[in-house]
Amino acid sequence: MNNNHLMRIALFVGLVAAITLAVIYRDRFDGAALEAWVHDAGPVAPLLFMLAYALAAVLFLPGSVLTLAGGALFGPVLGTVYNLAGATLGATLAFLIARYLASDWVAEKAGGRVKQLINGVEGEGWRFVAFVRLVPLFPFNLLNYALGLTRLRLSHYILATAVFMLPAAVAFTYLGYAGREAVAGGEGMIQKGLMALALLAVVAFLPRLIASLRSGPMIDTETFKQMRDTRKDLLVLDVRTAGDFVGEQGHIEGAVNIPVEELEQRMDELGDYLERPVAIVCRTDKRSAKAELLLAEEGFADVHVVRGGMTKWIDAGLPVV
């Protein structure tokens, strides 16, 4: 066993021990204790705050406590700067730790669906990082480690993390600031509260916006037929009811039927197609458009609505079952 291997084992054991202790004593990690600690730090308080934020990200401590505290302690502008810097530093440290500990092993051992997912992430590069930062599909702390197991370029990861975490950082930092002002009875409490709510509404709307940008364009029947004939990895997803699927119009051979009303509950059945093309059909295309949005919000990267659905397919004289 070489020294590098021993160092990895030691780092892994130390990391697990530190995370375990952090989880056990996480009840002591609250805003009041953090505020007292920062005030005692004097002029180096901002630096210590950013380091504490980074350490919290590495040890799976809740970043929301720190983000709100940053707004309360440093105000909306400097608080955003310190929060974003600390979160980016912590995300980078976790990414590098995971890459050092296990990326080679994962690259060697991964196969099947796991390998496919990794290849999809690496293929999208910074765009995938941007998407998951704006649309938090996975917990922030866990995602940092998971992305370190891929071959994403470090510079792309850091830049996309910093840029695309900014909207949420601004919103939640301002929320912490507004909360502190409300408690202290500062002026303009109503305006500041409304501003905080407006920023949170923008952040809440971002997943839908990004999902619509990430999804593929609507395609006509001819294009759909060409894709079906040439793309063997294409999933044809029919989102009509089970009765319609075997009813008057019939269905396209090989199509998978999941009614749009059941799609959220049955999303795990489509896990193999996260990074593969999906064409959605219904009677026309209204139900398909709803299904497209649901899939895009779950991270499906290549989703298309077939314009006119089964009606246009049948009008074109194409075969059905």
Rank of each mutant, 00 (worst) to 15 (best):
L15P: 04
L235Y: 02
A296C: 05
R8T: 02
V114M: 14
I219V: 14
A182H: 04
I158Q: 11
V305I: 05
K286G: 12
L48N: 05
Y174F: 12
Y145P: 09
P319E: 09
A110E: 10
D233V: 04
L293R: 05
E108R: 13
A91V: 05
Y25C: 06
K115W: 00
Y100H: 12
P207V: 06
K290Q: 15
L89H: 03
G123A: 14
A211P: 05
L197E: 02
A33T: 08
E298P: 00
A36Y: 00
V278S: 09
D285C: 10
D272W: 02
H251Y: 08
V132E: 11
E269S: 08
A316G: 04
A22K: 00
R28N: 13
V246I: 11
A52I: 08
P319G: 10
G309T: 06
L200S: 07
V132Q: 12
L48T: 01
G31F: 01
D272N: 12
V135M: 09
I219Q: 11
K109T: 10
D30E: 12
E297P: 00
V303F: 05
G63W: 02
A182S: 13
W105P: 01
P167L: 10
V121E: 09
R307P: 00
L235P: 03
R153P: 04
A54K: 02
L6V: 02
G123Y: 04
M1T: 08
A32P: 00
E297G: 10
G271L: 07
N3K: 10
M218W: 01
A171T: 04
G14Q: 08
T221W: 02
L263V: 03
D233L: 07
